[in-house]
């Protein structure tokens, strides 16, 4: 029961225990409460009754701490760092989804992680409870695990976000790492069955360009925002398309690969290319748009 009393008072003190003067005050109150508990036990009280009397006699610890000018934070430094890391990471990930700069949230996440670990280490070092250094260390490690979990959760936003970006065919996305570009001609049209586009088109490859053989391809098409296969306007026989094999940004975005098309009509003018860099498309595909 002594441990329970210590725990009860420890919770009343919160982070104030680690403040100057807080530890001594905590010890004095704990000593008094335990003495009261033992007194009540000697008087024939049941342990539960003695516990209630001992803890009930403690009173308003917040007012006591105020009188000593000991500030008690409701939440620990670790909590605030975790919350900050969580929200900042989530916010930056959202921004990165727009800017497509994965290293920004990665760097911030790692910085937050370093801060959290440093905080945990400082807490261990500053601990005045020399009697139970292992217990303190275990607590600090547990907190660090929670903090890391929160950061990982924040990072998971990126995965979820990337998932929606990659597989949601209604959205257009930036192309990050082009591996190859192919000019193709549709030989079998797509079909719409019950209002749903089937990916059943077939094509012949007119030319395939390896990115490695065209050093400035990435630069040239880096700004090309492709238009994913349109669900309402299927590819027709004879359409000329640019198929781009690409991968997304490196970790923490998981590696993905997909094929998409910017598209030109067989008779000339581009269409369904709302986001295309038309000049880039012309340079690559125009010779075949005849």
């Amino acid at each position: 029961m002594h441990k329970q009393i210590e725990k009860y008072i420890s919770e009343l003190f919160g982070t104030a225990i680690n403040k100057p003067g807080g530890k001594e005050l905590y010890s004095e109150l704990t000593d008094s409460a335990i003495s009261r508990y033992e007194e009540e036990i000697k008087n024939g009280r049941l342990p539960s009754e003695a516990y209630q009397l001992a803890t009930g006699a403690i009173g308003d610890v917040d007012a006591l701490l105020d009188s000593y000018r000991i500030k008690k934070r409701r939440y620990s430094v670790g909590f605030w760092l975790t919350a900050a890391a969580f929200f900042i990471s989530a916010a930056v990930f959202s921004a990165s989804a727009l800017l497509h700069r994965a290293y920004v949230p990665l760097a911030i996440g790692l910085a937050a992680l370093a801060l959290c670990c440093a905080t945990a280490l400082i807490r261990i070092k500053r601990s005045s409870d020399r009697r139970a250094p292992l217990k303190k260390a275990a607590r600090a490690i547990a907190k660090a695990v929670i903090i890391v979990s929160a950061i990982v959760s924040a990072f998971s936003f990126a995965s979820i976000d990337a998932y929606h970006q990659i597989w949601n065919y209604d959205q257009s996305r930036w192309i990050d790492n082009i591996e190859s570009v192919s000019i193709i001609r549709v030989t079998h049209p797509e079909e719409i069955v019950d209002g749903v586009l089937t990916d059943g088109f077939e094509y012949e490859t007119l030319v395939e360009i390896d990115a490695a053989e065209w050093p400035d391809l990435l630069e040239k098409l880096g700004g090309l925002r492709f238009y994913q296969n349109n669900k309402t306007e299927p590819l027709q026989y004879g359409d000329i398309c640019v198929l781009i094999d690409y991968t997304g940004e490196p970790w923490p975005y998981f590696i993905y690969s997909s094929t998409c098309s910017a598209r030109g009509g067989k008779d000339g003018p581009l269409y369904n290319c709302d986001y295309c860099d038309k000049d880039a498309f012309d340079e690559i595909a125009a010779p075949y748009l005849k």
Binding site: L25, E28, L29, D31, S32, A33, S35, R36, E39, A57, I58, G59, D60, V61, A63, L64
Partner: peptide, 24 residues
Amino acid sequence: GYEIGKAIRTITGGLYELKEATLY
């Protein structure tokens, strides 16, 4: 602290008790 609080309780026959926080 505890001894003073206990003395107050004893003298008053348990009718008055100073809470520990008030005492400190």
